[in-house]
Design a binder for these strands. Structure first.
Lengths: 130, 130
DNA sequence: TTCTTATGAATGAAAG
DNA sequence: CTTTCATTCATAAGAA
C-alpha cells in the first residue's frame, strides 16, 4: 500500500456536460455528472487569491464580473462564486474558532503563470472591476 | 496501480501529524501514518452509543467534550467527531431512502431536550457505561 | 495482489 | 451569517 498523503485535490479529464469554455492551459472541469459545479484548479486558485487579498463578501456586481472572467477556465455561474465565498468564509471562521473543520490547504498547484498573476492583479486593483 | 482515472495534484496538508495524544492507557491507533483518523474500537463504540441515544448533530461544545473524552482512547480531533456524525447521519438517511420511502423515524428523544443532554453528559463521564 | 466495501474527508448547495 | 444536507473523492480494511 502506498502511503497516504494528507489531502489533495484532483483534476479530472474529460467529461462533457455542456459548453466547455476552457481557455489557455485550463483543463476541463468535466464531471461525471452535471449535477453541480466542479471548479477547475485555476478557478480555485483565483478565487483563493481573491480571498486572501481580503475579499470576503463580493457584491452581486463583483460576483458577476468574477464569474464572467472565470468562465475563461471553465463552466461557471454567478451563484457558484457566491456560494464559494460564503462557504470559504464560513469554514475559515469555523476553523479559526477551533470548532471543527480542518486546516487550510496550501496549493502547490500549477506553475502560476504570469497571465494568472496579472489576471488576479487586474481583478483586485482596477477600480472599475472591484 | 492503474491510473488514468484522474490526475491528481497534491496539496500540502498541515505540518504533519498532530502529536500522538494517546492519553493514559489508551493504545495507539497502531498506525504511525498521518493519513487520516483511524478510530479505535472504543471510540467507535462510544460514538455509536451516543448516536443510538438520539444524538445526531452535536453542538460545537458537545463535539469538544466528546473529542476530549475520546482522546483517552487514542488520537482524535474535534473535526473527526464532527465528520463522524455528519457521515453517520447522512448514510443512515441515504440507506433509508434507497430501501424504502422515508417513513420518518421517531426517536425516543427529541432533538434538544434536557433529558437528552443529561443522558449524553452522563454517558460521557461514566466509565463503566462505556 | 486485485477487487470490493466501509468510511474519513471535503465541499457545493441550500436551509435556517 | 451559521448550520445542515447531499454528493463525491480517497483511502483503509477486508474479501477473494
Amino acid at each position: 500500500m502506498e502511503d497516504g498523503v494528507c489531502s489533495r485535490i484532483y483534476v479530472k479529464g474529460g467529461g462533457g456536460c455542456s459548453g466547455e469554455s476552457g481557455g489557455g492551459g485550463g483543463k476541463g472541469s468535466g464531471s461525471s455528472k452535471c449535477g453541480r459545479w466542479n471548479p477547475t484548479a485555476e478557478q480555485v486558485k483565483v478565487l483563493t487569491e481573491l480571498f486572501r487579498s481580503g475579499l470576503r463578501t463580493p457584491s452581486s456586481d463583483q460576483i458577476q464580473k468574477i464569474s464572467h472572467h472565470l468562465s475563461f477556465y471553465g463552466k461557471i455561474e454567478s451563484k457558484n462564486v457566491f456560494y464559494w465565498f460564503q462557504n470559504h468564509k464560513a469554514r475559515e471562521r469555523q476553523k479559526r474558532r477551533k470548532l471543527s473543520l480542518p486546516q487550510q490547504q496550501h496549493f502547490i498547484l500549477p506553475p502560476s503563470s504570469n497571465l494568472q498573476r496579472m489576471f488576479v492583479f487586474h481583478l483586485l486593483f482596477i477600480p472599475q472591476f472591484i
